[in-house]
Design a protein around this nucleic acid. Structure first.
Lengths: 159, 159
DNA sequence: CCTATGTGGACTATTATAGTCCACATTGAT
DNA sequence: ATCAATGTGGACTATAATAGTCCACATAGG
């Protein structure tokens, strides 16, 4: 007997949030749930299901971006460098992925040689602003509170 | 004498609209501006600054997606298979790039093994719906009208 | 039958993403 | 002073997506 798998349609999805960003957000949420404590990359990796080596790179970026502080050496670790309500999703996404844009055409003169006569520009810009506006309204505090309310993960009972 | 180029900051941008989608939209706009006529891929490529061979692939996708019709053979070409007001940006983007999603986690069971306990889900879904809603409200007619009002490109005076 | 056109498949090139590895710097504890 | 635990930085690989190209073929009009 055979099983025939048929893929209907085109590529399944096109994601706005990359995995590294998702990992970064998970890490930040984890830190927000453990205030006043230095948490090691290893602990975050384990609790949040993120490859340790990769997470380290991500934490370095978050550190350079000013979202977390790092304490080196034994008993060191990471901690939030700002209050959770002072960190919003847009900032984190743009730190991890670069500026969120609908289309390169509108980023500058060099993006697209048709820019001067490009009429899609207005629509793209408007959309960009809406998305950015919405993302910037969601703070790390919001996310952390939802985790606490849900009782998961990492903030609740350990296995 | 030397020129030293320094790249400051992170990756410059993260684009939601891919080039192929932009090309596809340009092609659709072009067709909308030339109703009742069969336009060859070569003409669209020239007028819209798109590599011909690549545009052909894009037009094939648009054809299979039901947005344009194709007439083979000499004197053949492409034409809109729907009225411009019946084609919206979301449909085109999703045909070209796949379903627009914030994050794979929420696409199904397989996207992410943390899905059952993922608390970001609600926020992502809400954002997805807003973006989709906005994109689905912009029709090809809107874009074509803006081009006509602007007098550019392809709808205006030829060089 | 010739030519202009779209179709479909295979192919390459480039870039982004995801992930890994290792030498090194720092710090607390002993 | 030394050791072990930790973060840092650079180089590296692997995989996938995107962008683009090439060619044989199908089709339709003249």
């Amino acid at each position: 007997m055979w099983t025939i798998i048929v893929h209907i349609g085109v590529g399944v999805s096109m994601e706005i949030i990359r995995r590294k960003t998702e990992y970064g957000i998970r890490a930040l949420v984890h830190l927000a749930l453990h205030p006043g404590k230095e948490v090691t990359a290893a602990e975050i990796a384990e609790e949040q299901d993120v490859p340790l080596e990769y997470l380290q790179k991500i934490l370095q970026k978050l550190t350079r971006g000013g979202f977390v502080g790092a304490q080196r050496g034994a008993y060191g670790g990471f901690y939030l460098a700002k209050n959770p309500e002072e960190i919003n999703l847009l900032e984190v996404i743009e730190l991890m992925q670069g500026k969120l844009a609908m289309n390169k055409c509108f980023l500058g003169k060099d993006g697209c040689n048709r820019a001067p006569k490009c009429v899609l520009k207005y629509n793209w810009l408007q959309l960009e602003q809406r998305i950015a506006g919405f993302l910037s309204q969601i703070t790390l505090l919001d996310l952390a509170e939802q985790v606490r309310e849900g009782g998961l993960p990492g903030g609740g009972v350990k296995k």
